[in-house]
């Protein structure tokens, strides 16, 4: 890539370049293999739907009875969306508030401790959050509104899991806003609240948005924590206290014994999840590059 390392006539160098490009081709191939295998394994399922012409049945509510050949994924897709949206609705404002506190209000020592805690929690495995949710949160909710293992429990546990990420990315987005803006708004005699909400937050919005999108992808793809606290009953999410089963949890639960079309349908739902994550990371990428372009012009 660099000026210094353009062309070399040394034999070892050329050999090494070839080896490394082979390795890269191998890695790229491996990545394609993942998609190909997902497609290949879910093909019988997708093809049978294609031939029989009832593609929409996948999404129309006819229930998930894989052993009878009925694969209505709608309840689980909706449950995935409900859990993700719920977690984002809670985590985004809270995470933003934490980022604002970190950047504008906390003393350096407090901010350091807070950051340390957030970093720590960002590294805790999802299965530990699941365990905690199962043994602490679910009994609490049961006392209030049985059965306890519910949409609400899943939302709360996921919120705790993605909050550190949102808070940390938003804080770094806020920190990278040019200091001139803050100084200017102070000089205009704005209140602290106005400075933050009307000047700093809008200026950092693309960084915040791309962090939030990545957190959404993580929430959507989360398996263990949700599996452990959501109750796993296949039904349309009709209330906060109803047990639900999300797409990822369904794969984890049924993969062990799934055969034939059933197995293929699980791979198809894996494919669907991958597509959703691609979509999210594409949007995040767009938002990010847009912000970089703006920064260059500004």
């Amino acid at each position: 890539m660099s000026i210094a390392m353009k062309r070399s006539n040394n034999r070892v160098d050329r050999r090494l370049g070839q080896i490394f490009s082979l390795l890269s081709a191998g890695a790229a191939l491996l990545l394609m293999l993942i998609v190909l295998f997902l497609l290949n394994e879910s093909w019988p399922f997708l093809a049978s739907f294609w031939h029989e012409g009832h593609w929409l049945d996948l999404f129309q509510s006819q229930g998930w009875y894989p052993l009878e050949g009925r694969f209505g994924m709608t309840p689980m897709i909706l449950a995935s969306i409900a859990v993700t949206l719920g977690a984002m609705l809670l985590a985004l404002p809270l995470g933003l508030a934490n980022a604002i506190y970190l950047e504008f209000y906390a003393s350096p020592v407090t901010a350091r401790g807070f950051r340390l805690l957030l970093n720590l929690l960002a590294g805790v495995p999802s299965v530990v959050f699941g365990l905690w949710g199962l043994t602490r949160l679910v009994p609490l909710i049961t006392q209030w509104q049985p059965p306890g293992a519910s949409l609400l429990a899943a939302i709360l546990v996921l919120t705790l899991m993605i909050l550190p990420t949102i808070a940390l990315t938003s804080a770094s987005a806020l920190a990278s806003v040019p200091k001139d803006l803050l100084a200017g708004s102070m000089a205009l005699g704005m209140r602290r609240k106005t400075q933050i909400l009307h000047i700093m937050l809008p200026a950092a919005r693309s960084g915040i948005a791309s962090g939030a999108l990545l957190a959404t992808a993580r929430a959507l793809g989360e398996t263990m924590a949700v599996l452990m606290v959501a109750g796993n009953v296949v039904q349309l999410p009709s209330g906060l206290f109803e047990p639900v089963r999300v797409l990822t949890a369904n794969i984890a639960l049924e993969m062990a014994y799934a055969m034939g079309d059933h197995r293929a349908s699980l791979f198809a739902s894996g494919l669907l999840l991958t597509l959703l994550v691609w979509l999210l990371s594409w949007v995040a990428h767009r938002v990010n590059s847009q912000s970089q372009r703006l920064a260059h012009h500004g």
Binding site: I34, F37, L38, T223, G270, S281
Partner: peptide, 19 residues
């Protein structure tokens, strides 16, 4: 591709690994 794969849910890697 690397960036996209970094975000793919782990359960999907499990499916791939199994297959």
């Amino acid at each position: 591709t690397l960036d996209i794969l970094a975000g793919v849910p782990s359960i999907v890697y499990g499916l791939f690994g199994n297959a």
